[in-house]
Amino acid sequence: KRPMNAFMVWARIHRPALAKANPAANNAEISVQLGLEWNKLSEEQKKPYYDEAQKIKEKHREEFPGW
């Protein structure tokens, strides 16, 4: 399985609240909304998620060399 990128790290945190706020929305609609919200963030706001994604990527590389 591929390691999460910065957007996926961010979305994992924000998806539950968005789903709760929009109970009639299906998963595809929630994903679209998450994408729109992510694109509104500044690079500075995204930086912690890029940092976390890098850590996940490095850990994945250690656990699965050659993947």
Results as ranks from 00 to 15, higher is better:
1 K>H: 12
1 K>S: 12
2 R>S: 06
3 P>M: 15
3 P>V: 09
3 P>R: 11
5 N>P: 02
5 N>M: 04
5 N>H: 07
6 A>F: 00
6 A>V: 01
7 F>C: 10
7 F>D: 06
7 F>L: 01
8 M>T: 07
9 V>W: 01
9 V>M: 07
9 V>Q: 03
9 V>E: 11
10 W>P: 02
10 W>F: 11
10 W>V: 00
10 W>Q: 02
10 W>T: 01
12 R>C: 04
12 R>Q: 14
13 I>S: 08
13 I>T: 13
13 I>H: 08
13 I>K: 11
14 H>C: 03
14 H>D: 01
15 R>V: 02
15 R>N: 01
16 P>I: 10
16 P>G: 08
16 P>D: 15
16 P>W: 02
17 A>C: 07
17 A>D: 14
18 L>M: 14
18 L>I: 10
20 K>W: 03
20 K>C: 01
20 K>E: 09
21 A>G: 04
21 A>D: 10
21 A>H: 04
22 N>P: 02
22 N>A: 06
22 N>T: 06
22 N>S: 08
23 P>A: 05
23 P>K: 05
24 A>R: 04
25 A>C: 11
25 A>S: 08
25 A>V: 06
25 A>L: 15
26 N>D: 11
26 N>H: 05
27 N>R: 12
27 N>A: 13
27 N>P: 10
27 N>C: 13
28 A>N: 13
29 E>A: 05
29 E>P: 00
30 I>T: 00
31 S>W: 12
31 S>Y: 05
32 V>R: 15
32 V>F: 15
33 Q>N: 12
34 L>Y: 02
34 L>D: 00
34 L>Q: 02
36 L>H: 09
36 L>G: 04
37 E>S: 05
37 E>P: 00
37 E>D: 06
38 W>Y: 04
38 W>C: 01
38 W>N: 01
38 W>L: 01
39 N>I: 01
40 K>E: 06
40 K>W: 00
40 K>L: 07
40 K>I: 03
42 S>T: 09
42 S>R: 02
42 S>M: 03
43 E>N: 07
44 E>G: 08
44 E>C: 12
45 Q>L: 04
46 K>L: 00
46 K>P: 00
47 K>C: 11
47 K>P: 00
47 K>T: 10
49 Y>T: 01
49 Y>K: 00
49 Y>V: 01
49 Y>E: 00
50 Y>E: 12
50 Y>I: 11
51 D>C: 07
53 A>S: 06
53 A>G: 03
53 A>V: 03
53 A>Y: 08
54 Q>D: 12
54 Q>A: 10
55 K>M: 04
55 K>C: 10
55 K>N: 08
56 I>H: 14
57 K>S: 12
57 K>N: 15
57 K>E: 15
58 E>Y: 04
60 H>F: 12
60 H>M: 15
60 H>I: 09
60 H>S: 12
61 R>T: 11
61 R>P: 10
63 E>R: 05
63 E>W: 08
63 E>K: 14
64 F>D: 12
64 F>E: 15
65 P>D: 14
65 P>E: 10
65 P>I: 09
66 G>M: 08
66 G>C: 12
66 G>L: 08
66 G>F: 06
66 G>Y: 07
67 W>L: 13
67 W>T: 14
67 W>K: 15
